[in-house]
Design a binder for these strands. Structure first.
Lengths: 119, 119
DNA sequence: TGATGAATTGCAGAGTTCTTCAATTGATCA
DNA sequence: TGATCAATTGAAGAACTCTGCAATTCATCA
């Protein structure tokens, strides 16, 4: 404990969320939530360029949120720990609520736009 | 339901996380978790430039995660709904676990670096 | 060994986000 | 009204991220 260069917690949090902030990375994490997957599977499931996927996998690897293992000529990825799966579930739950909230908000906005138009 | 231009869910998620991915925005959300705050309070608590804070508040506002209300010459911000507070709590919990995991991972890395150095 | 397939890395250009300065809006009060 | 404080907006440059091409690594197998 007590490193020479402690990163403030709020900054670590921000970096963590930023790391999650990319559609391909989200998809990969959700796919890995189902279980370990080979890169070829991730490739076909996401439909992105091989090198582009690799770049995003590298981001997740550097963050320590996934782990890769070479098996012969193929590479398999998996979530780095059970917490990560929990995290993805929590995020999904939270986001579903959030998006529901946004829909309501949208309705409100629509409503007030209408009343503004009427006046 | 069923808008003309539905955004894929994983993209909405990515945007949401990206929106969280900034140290000042994280700090603001945590401060607002304690209760509504005036901009002046946020200013002194975060210590950033006024215009910089305003920019970040605008990001949170556009995302619909905070709400602002003018009261005389000052403006007060609050979390836009109870889900948001839950979200922040969940994120904190998750991240604490994650960071603990990272420390372990770091220990492992240190360990393997040492054994590599030995061989 | 060389040819092939799987995955990664390096890199350049396009695009996005951050910060800061200056200008603006809105409210208060002498 | 004009002076002042609070907060926001606009805009420009620096910094960062993303994509896709080309080159590379690593393993397999004829």
């Amino acid at each position: 404990m007590g490193s020479a260069m402690a990163v403030p917690l709020y900054q670590a949090k921000a970096e963590f969320f930023r790391m999650l902030g990319h559609p391909v990375r989200i998809r990969v994490l959700e796919l890995l939530g189902e279980g370990p997957k080979q890169v070829r599977e991730l490739l076909t499931d996401t439909g992105v360029e091989a090198s582009s996927l690799s770049q995003q996998l590298a981001v997740l690897r550097r963050a320590g949120i996934v782990a890769s293992a070479r098996e012969g000529s193929t590479v398999t990825y998996a979530l780095a720990g059970p917490d990560v799966a929990d995290l993805m579930l929590a995020a999904r739950r939270i986001l579903t609520e959030m998006l529901a909230g946004q829909v309501e908000l949208l309705d409100e906005l629509r409503e007030s736009a209408v009343s503004r138009a009427r006046s």
